[in-house]
Nucleic acid binder design. Sequence first.
DNA 1: ATGAAAGCGCTAACAA
DNA 2: TTGTTAGCGCTTTCAT
Lengths: 340, 340
Amino acid sequence: VLSLSKLILLNQKATLKAIAEQLQMSISTVSRALKNHPDISEATRKKVTELANMMEYEPNAYAVSLRTNNSRVFCIMVPAVSNLFYHSFVSAVEEEARKENYSLLILQSGDNPATEIDNLKLCRQNRATGVFVSISPQTTNIDHFNRMVEQGVPVIFFDKVPTADNCNKVCLADSEVGKMAARKLLEKKKKNILAIFGNPDLSITKKRMQGFVDEMNTNGSGAKHEVYHAKTAAEANQFFHLSFKNGQSYDAVFCMSDEILTGVMKGVQELGISIPKQLGIISISNGFVPQLYHPEISYVETSGYKLGKLAFNRMLSCMSGNTATEELTLDSVFVEGGSI
Amino acid sequence: VLSLSKLILLNQKATLKAIAEQLQMSISTVSRALKNHPDISEATRKKVTELANMMEYEPNAYAVSLRTNNSRVFCIMVPAVSNLFYHSFVSAVEEEARKENYSLLILQSGDNPATEIDNLKLCRQNRATGVFVSISPQTTNIDHFNRMVEQGVPVIFFDKVPTADNCNKVCLADSEVGKMAARKLLEKKKKNILAIFGNPDLSITKKRMQGFVDEMNTNGSGAKHEVYHAKTAAEANQFFHLSFKNGQSYDAVFCMSDEILTGVMKGVQELGISIPKQLGIISISNGFVPQLYHPEISYVETSGYKLGKLAFNRMLSCMSGNTATEELTLDSVFVEGGSI
DNA sequence: ATGAAAGCGCTAACAA
DNA sequence: TTGTTAGCGCTTTCAT
């Protein structure tokens, strides 16, 4: 239950001006009192803070930004937030941003370069302090992003990054990840490997494949591997069925992504194949999907969460005047599950 | 390659003032020209828009908000964005917000009531036009939220909603969902059902359980059911093992959530139980996890995406002056998978 | 220790 | 058709 006087106070807008009028003092005194300026007397400070609390005063972020020319807003642009990998990235950035007292503007591009440009306008309208972006596969021209950088707004590309090299990138070590998966397969003495990759046009596919194939060719004496591409889980499932119906006897399957893995694992269940006895499985994953199965699937980890933390640090470094562009890479980790 | 003159233009801040100075006209003329005010001559409009494009002018969102007293920002507060259900909700709201030209401020509470209050301050600082919130289980006092409503900021509670009834709620029909799952089990003539629910303190658990048990008691003549609670996937897994090691012969398992389902399905794989021959499985889910298995798990759908759309509509209705509070409920759908 | 005043970028009522 | 002016809420310099 609120007292009448409190009700009256609450019903007017809580601004510095309103507080100043109530207290018969100037706006600047109120402002200073509220931010513990040393010049302000204890008595004044006390009166002001008490009334401010009563009125539930919160500074108007827009007025502050306008005045200080500093928005304290980061923008994150991703193809779609409804994606395990990206939302763990967002989650990590949110945590760090909160600590540093920044807010987040989250934008989806839907893998559409035109929407990307629209979103960039929103970033500019909101005078974003910095931008994190994972670009769409069709984005080749990054002039718009470079423009932001020229104007002093750091842009950190992450995950899906452009090929140009004069920009800040924070990536998974995709080639290294593919290499590590191949190495694990060879360590386990797999001789006849089915490797299923995603859309061959994506740079992520190219890099993972390059690492995988390199390792196989360099150190895989005696081991055979066949490469397929599947754009969806359903396609991966079909490939799997074809491969195991034709009597070919692979002893291991490599899945480039969760999408592929789910298609393959459905095939495994459909055909009643026993893992790892009849067949070894290894995947590249964020970690959620592999632990749904028994035995849990062994995978090389690509953590959106860790990438988010790394990207945020890079952002802070850019903001503190570090103008050199850098290409950072997240070390990959193998997580043993029992499927190989 | 940019011309020198363009470079010079780009290097100064793109504001109405800067444009006005270049063109030797007043700020208001420029402002009007840019928003196609009918009073402005074609010649002037053309000159202004051309220069504005050259300078890549974007209005300063903070100045606009400050002046118009309208932020065009919605705030969404959830326990954690790294959650399948919530991020599909966020995704839906983002889509609608974009159409209406609103931005999104996304905040995580970490299921902590104190953080919730902090977040609410952020909402106020950003003068959010409206707030979507799924509260933490420990939040009993919703005064802070009511305060926002009193000050004209609509608050739409979704999913995890408070018990008080003078507020806007958009929920899954949790009781109905439980009831529907029970009905499906009875239709399939299941006689001996293991029902695993989540944390018994959560209202969502209570409601789903109430619906389930009600239906069983009302129409389940001849069918037995036993209720367990598991707070994590691992606990559900343990229960499952105990239940099937002790020689008890359930013919179906009901899982209240994805979390429970993953624990149970791991048990199914570990014990090599054949679905649906030896055992029927039914779950309540967003839809992602059930389709990872073979056969796909039959589930009653709880769509975060659809809930997001519904919540957004409710928000628009509140903003257009509809002050009556309402409690909306999303109809549930049964999705046949083959596991029962 | 406190106040007055300018200005951030924009909109809109009023004037010309 | 265009310009002048005031003001949104805040910070900060300069004065007192």
